[in-house]
Amino acid sequence: MKLNGVSVEATGSLLDTVLAAGIALPHLCKDDNLPVIGACRTCLVEADGRIVAACSTPAAGVQECATDSERAVRIRRGVLELTAAMQSGPAGAAGGPRSAESLEAYASHAPRPGQYGLRSGTHADLSNPFFSFHEDACILCARCVTACQELQHIGAIGIAGRGHTARVTPGAGVSFRESICTSCGSCVAACPTSALRPKG
């Protein structure tokens, strides 16, 4: 398969192939510890002329893939602009171990600041002794929820509400502390932003 014009071996998904080739590509909802989610749409590439999400597209069967085509970069930038507009919290807030992923994605795609007005939640949940949740940094990538439900099979949190009312929610709308959260921290480990951040 040709990747940005260079022959490479196709392995797993397009994202796997891209990353194996040492090419940086944002993938804000795909954690190597978790199944494919397909929510963030920051991993878009052009494959045989179509724009596809690299994380959920098998590499086999694709002849030519471009991460750097003008169209792919433009659309990714657009998605990242919409993503950035969800975050009104302090830009440099210290997050968990994966929080740099979102910062790197922004850094590499130069989203036009203020392209879209902010549309972020304001809820904060400080009830857990080990970590806190800050909706003003959350991009609803669902990694945390997937970690809780499909990795740990605990299901303390979910995404309640549909459309633009969707929000990471413990239990039936309670705090982390009142939920069945066991403080295993898998959600914090997965979060690509500083929305879930360890305390102290």
């Binding site: 397909g38 929510a39 963030c40 749409r41 920051t42 657009g78 998605v79 919409l82 993503t83 507009a85 969800m86 879209y116 549309r119 991009i139 609803l140 669902a142 995404i159 509400g161 549909r162 459309g163 633009h164 009312t165 969707a166």
Partner: peptide, 18 residues
């Protein structure tokens, strides 16, 4: 469309209201 977006993916959830 903005109201019926399921809210899973960013372009639709964030984009359609805009």
């Amino acid at each position: 469309n903005a109201e019926e977006s399921c809210g899973k993916c960013t372009p639709c959830r964030e984009g359609t209201p805009r």
